[in-house]
């Protein structure tokens, strides 16, 4: 079984986001990690391979050279091969990324494609769905359970207030939600093995695309940071009096009751 996992390198969840003088997000000195939802996808791919007793897990990413770190982590977890498409210094949106991924994938063999349902940075939750659309295969989002047998995938997905079990023919794209699994830690053995696993690096030209074909359709105009949290207020005095004052403030100032 050929399993593909699309993954993205994102800022560390604990990274402090700041804007540079041009109002763009400052990327210097920020530690980078594999998008946590993609980590669930990698883990699920490995479990799928282990349960089936055979198969190959290939991880694919679009990004700069530093993205190799995230791919290397997936290899250390147990993936077999990695593919990195470095589009160079160009602006990308979800359309661009999905176009690149779909183009690379269309040249590969695959039975199932996994990915996180969204990235924790821009959080648009579009790329996996777009890839499925371009490849003309089904997509199931936000899965928390997956079983694969006889050319079909049965997945449990979150819906408002409950869950739904769906069945799709393979190949299909399935995106991971928190709760799908608990990703493994790369072991030292895995890390050492990962050094010898193939990491294919491609440019846009290698993929067979030109810059014009991936020109973004959406342009970010500006970024802003949330207002810093204001300090709390302590209401002094006797409990009964303070409670009365609190009720008044909640009604008149905060207007929440």
């Amino acid at each position: 079984m050929k399993i593909l996992v699309c993954l993205k390198q994102t800022f560390d969840t604990e990274a402090k986001i700041v804007l540079d003088e041009n109002g763009k997000i400052e990327r210097q000195g920020v530690s980078l990690i594999m998008n946590p939802y993609d980590e669930f996808a990698v883990e699920e791919a490995l479990r799928l391979k282990e349960n089936q007793g055979e198969g190959e897990v290939t991880v694919i990413s679009v990004g700069g050279q530093q993205t190799q770190d995230a791919l290397r982590q997936a290899l250390a977890m147990g993936a077999d091969k990695a593919v990195l498409v470095d589009p160079g210094d160009v602006e990308l949106d979800e359309y661009s990324t999905a176009t690149i991924l779909a183009k690379v994938i269309s040249g590969m063999e695959y039975d199932i494609i996994l990915g996180g349902f969204r990235a924790i940075d821009d959080g648009s939750a579009q790329v996996a769905g777009r890839v499925a659309e371009i490849l003309n295969i089904p997509v199931v989002n936000m899965i928390t359970k997956l079983e694969v047998a006889d050319g079909k995938a049965v997945a449990t997905r979150e819906i408002e207030g409950g869950s739904e079990v769906v069945e799709v023919p393979l190949p299909a794209v399935l995106t991971a939600q928190k709760g799908l699994n608990e990703p493994r830690y790369p072991s030292m053995k895995g890390i050492m093995k990962a050094k010898k696993k193939p990491m294919q690096k491609m440019t846009l030209a290698d993929v067979g695309l030109e810059e014009g074909q991936i020109a973004p359709k959406v342009k970010a105009i500006s970024f802003s940071l949330p207002e810093p949290r204001k300090a709390g207020k302590i209401i002094p005095g006797e409990p009964a009096e303070a409670a009365r004052e609190l009720a008044r403030l909640l009604r008149e100032e905060a207007k929440v009751v």
Binding site: Y185, P186, S187, I191, A194, K195
Partner: peptide, 14 residues
Amino acid sequence: QEEHEMLRKSVRSW
């Protein structure tokens, strides 16, 4: 080496 820094991440998250 690079592998030690990867191991560091593993141990740290554990």
